[in-house]
Amino acid sequence: MDAGELIEAALALTPEPGGRFLLGIAGAPGAGKSTLARLLVTELRGRLGPDAAAYVPMDGFHLSNAQLARLGLSARKGSAPSFDVWGYLTLLRRLRAHPASEPVYVPDYDRELHEPVAARHVVAPTTRLVLTEGNYLAAGAAAGPGWAEVRAELDAVWFLATPDGVRDTRLLARQQAGGLDPSAARSWVDANDHPNGDLVNSHLPHDVRVITLDAV
């Protein structure tokens, strides 16, 4: 499937003005979820108007480095317990409370700061398609408490299946861009990113649409 087909599929899910649809894009680390979600939002805004679609990254609910240290999770950053799943769930429920009269501000994760940042994105009251993406959106209870409730708030979930070798190359480049030397990047990807990906890849419910793209 190419990007054009996915753009058309997202358009087909977008309700008429006055409605709202929450689409989740799941996948293992390095699958290309954020790139795809941003592409779809840009294309839908270009066709339907600047507020028609909005980007809501799950990564904005990373726990801060201080909280990860307090919980002993610094070496497992990116694992399901290293997210504020209940905060993310509350946001999704706010977004479902539509029609809304006020904008909803959405946090993001900053790869230069290595910390979450508040209110980088906004969902307008007139937004019709919300695109949220993250590793654990399809995993449900297998990812731990709260994730089944997250899945229940989404109208549909797409799972982006990307070859392991492609993901590995991307993840190594990501860690080195973040400041790790090649050896430390290799250790991080093997000890953290790949186990997280194994959990995600091994829990695909029947109602999730699996998609593949040559490049995202």
Rank of each mutant, 00 (worst) to 15 (best):
Y109C: 13
L180P: 02
R76H: 12
L73F: 13
T127L: 01
W147I: 01
G144Y: 05
R76G: 10
S82R: 01
G134C: 09
A156Y: 05
A119I: 00
N196Y: 11
Q175C: 13
V150H: 08
R94Y: 01
A184H: 11
A161K: 07
E133S: 08
L68K: 14
L71R: 14
D181W: 08
R93Q: 12
P163F: 09
P81S: 12
A161P: 05
N196P: 07
A184L: 11
E133M: 01
D108H: 12
R170N: 09
L137Y: 04
S183A: 15
S79W: 05
N135W: 08
A152H: 12
G87T: 09
A97I: 03
L137S: 00
V166F: 08
D198I: 11
D190T: 12
A80K: 08
R70M: 15
E133T: 00
V85Q: 10
A156T: 11
P182R: 12
Y136C: 01
N135V: 01
H114W: 06
T90E: 14
Y88W: 09
A177C: 05
R170F: 01
L89V: 02
E102V: 10
A118N: 02
R111Q: 03
R174L: 11
S79D: 11
Q175D: 13
D108Q: 04
A66T: 13
V166M: 09
L180Q: 13
W188F: 15
N201C: 14
S101K: 14
L113E: 02
A185D: 08
A191C: 10
A148Y: 07
G144H: 04
V122P: 08
A69H: 13
A143D: 04
A141I: 08
E115Y: 03
V122T: 00
A161S: 14
E112K: 11
D168A: 14
D181T: 06
A66K: 12
A177P: 10
N196V: 08
P103R: 13
P195K: 10
G165C: 08
L171D: 10
P125M: 00
Q176F: 00
T126P: 03
L160H: 03
G140R: 07
A69E: 15
L95D: 09
G144K: 09
S187Y: 13
G144V: 05
D193T: 08
A142M: 03
P103N: 07
W147N: 02
A75S: 13
D110A: 12
A118L: 11
